[in-house]
């Protein structure tokens, strides 16, 4: 196990020659051993799939940790959830990625790609216009405000507050449903006019807060 949960806010990752780790810039708390950090830029060569991540761009600068040692990752006291991927994929807002194995493939779903729906989803969750798809075999750690809890879905549908949505794995369909009534238009609505309706087979991760970051 290369990802050790130190506490609810910090994760310790074993870095080796065979297993470099990509992480959000500024998220390294400390390390021991011979580890070198390198900022990764859009034109960077090497580590597969990274280019896609970098296209997410300005708001999501990453760096790669290479060498041999263990690194502590955490970010501004936000809670950390560790998710193992075995061939399936995780869809997450790019801002929330704390660290993941560099050999995972990352792709960005942007405006106009994958239909307008994913763009709207990104916009509505307040995390920018990008959602990132991470896939392959490896481990991902994801940031949240107040911790996450998983909701298992086996064909049913669950409604999630867009601000509380963190990520999902599996074959899930995510739709943004608006129920804007007259009261919302005049600003006296319940504040829950938009909901994400998640259906299918998989797991959706929800944070215990509506706070954005």
């Amino acid at each position: 196990m290369t990802y050790e949960v130190v506490n609810s806010k910090v994760v310790r990752v074993q870095v080796s020659q065979a297993n470099p780790v990509l992480a959000r810039r500024g998220a390294m708390l400390g390390y021991s051993g011979q580890v070198a950090f390198r900022p990764v830029s859009g034109a960077a060569q090497g580590i597969g799939g990274m280019v896609g991540t970098m296209m997410a761009g300005e708001s999501n600068k990453m760096m790669v940790a290479e060498g041999q040692g263990s690194v502590l990752y955490g970010f501004r006291g936000l809670y950390v959830t560790v998710i193992d991927l075995t061939g399936d994929s995780l869809v997450v807002e790019a801002d929330r990625l704390l660290a993941h194995d560099a050999n995972l493939q990352t792709g960005v779903e942007m405006v106009g790609q994958g239909g307008g729906r994913s763009a709207v989803r990104g916009a509505m969750t307040g995390q920018g216009l990008f959602t990132t798809r991470v896939s392959g075999n490896g481990t991902v750690s994801v940031l949240s405000h107040g911790g996450t809890f998983p909701i298992q879905l086996n064909g049913e549908t669950v409604g999630v507050d867009p601000q509380a949505y963190v990520a999902h794995t599996g074959a899930l369909q995510v739709d943004l449903k608006a129920s804007v009534g007259m009261r919302d238009l005049i600003g006296r609505g319940s504040g829950e006019a938009f909901q994400l309706h998640v259906s299918g087979h998989g797991t959706v991760y929800v944070q215990a807060s509506e706070e954005k970051f």
């Binding site: 500024g26 955490g74 970010f75």
Partner: peptide, 24 residues
């Protein structure tokens, strides 16, 4: 390149003792 993130600068501890860390 995120100089403000301070990733290129670390405090280096050597010798015997204990270092106390928190989430940033």
């Amino acid at each position: 390149f995120g100089r403000e993130s301070g990733e290129e600068r670390q405090y280096d501890f050597t010798g015997a003792g204990t270092v106390l860390m928190q989430s940033s």
